[in-house]
Design a protein around this nucleic acid. Sequence first.
DNA 1: CTTTCATGGTTACCTCTTGTAACTGACCCC
DNA 2: GGGGTCAGTTACAAGAGGTAACCATGAAAG
Lengths: 137, 137
Amino acid sequence: MEEGTSKEPSHSCCTEDAFQWDTREDCDVRQILDRIGDKWSLLVIALLDNRCMRFTELKKTIDGISQRMLTVTLRQLERDGLVSRTVHPVVPPRVDYELTPLGVTLHATIQSLVTWTETHQAEIATARARYDTLDAS
Amino acid sequence: MEEGTSKEPSHSCCTEDAFQWDTREDCDVRQILDRIGDKWSLLVIALLDNRCMRFTELKKTIDGISQRMLTVTLRQLERDGLVSRTVHPVVPPRVDYELTPLGVTLHATIQSLVTWTETHQAEIATARARYDTLDAS
DNA sequence: CTTTCATGGTTACCTCTTGTAACTGACCCC
DNA sequence: GGGGTCAGTTACAAGAGGTAACCATGAAAG
């Protein structure tokens, strides 16, 4: 009944037409997704919603980020052209971070992710609770 | 001219009305974003587009993922109620992974992220090249 | 004049997460 | 009975990230 003896080449039970994008580690899409999908970039972009923020302000706002990782994350986002970094030659130093036009286009998508999360957090909490009780049985 | 002497409480140069969501490390939204924004979950969900896939199939498709991390990622997604795991009691074992209805709602958003990445990869590549040459000067 | 403080970092070190590779267990085929 | 398949698990190495201390500058405080 089950054709799982690995003789059957039809490995997928539903549609066969594959994903249309490249999953190779060295392709552009993967490299960009790795950046977006790291621990902090998403949060930084989500916070920089049509306003600029200073380094310390971001650090205070993003609970749990270390100074080093905020620096690293912002440099990467700057390198990707998503965030602009403006140094004001004053003392104490003042550096403003702001989304670039490209960053703004990404912000919209990321915001929808955040919205999804807000909308479905209760369902996920329920699923987790159920999974954990099943595990304990 | 520059009011950067830290006497000014108005730390933001643009709008002051803050982000509406919680950035605390222990809040639901952050925990879910941490899951979504890890190295592999995004890719798994993106690939499970209205079809089920077997473990080995996912492993072959997602270039660079290790067996261990695929196991861990799938278990987490299952715990979150985003992916369903179906074990067929055959030999050799056959396990099908599929998006749950909740997972499908997330897939739409993640797909828009992938689409954004595809659309703007050239711009990002350009930005990176420019940044790197500036750095070398 | 000396001390203190603030900002936006950088550096050394140590921990925790992830990758690597070998092993398992059930059964089929040869 | 030796080798192959699938879906893992385990021990260990490598790499990413966290922690805390330090730096430069100049204004303000004493």
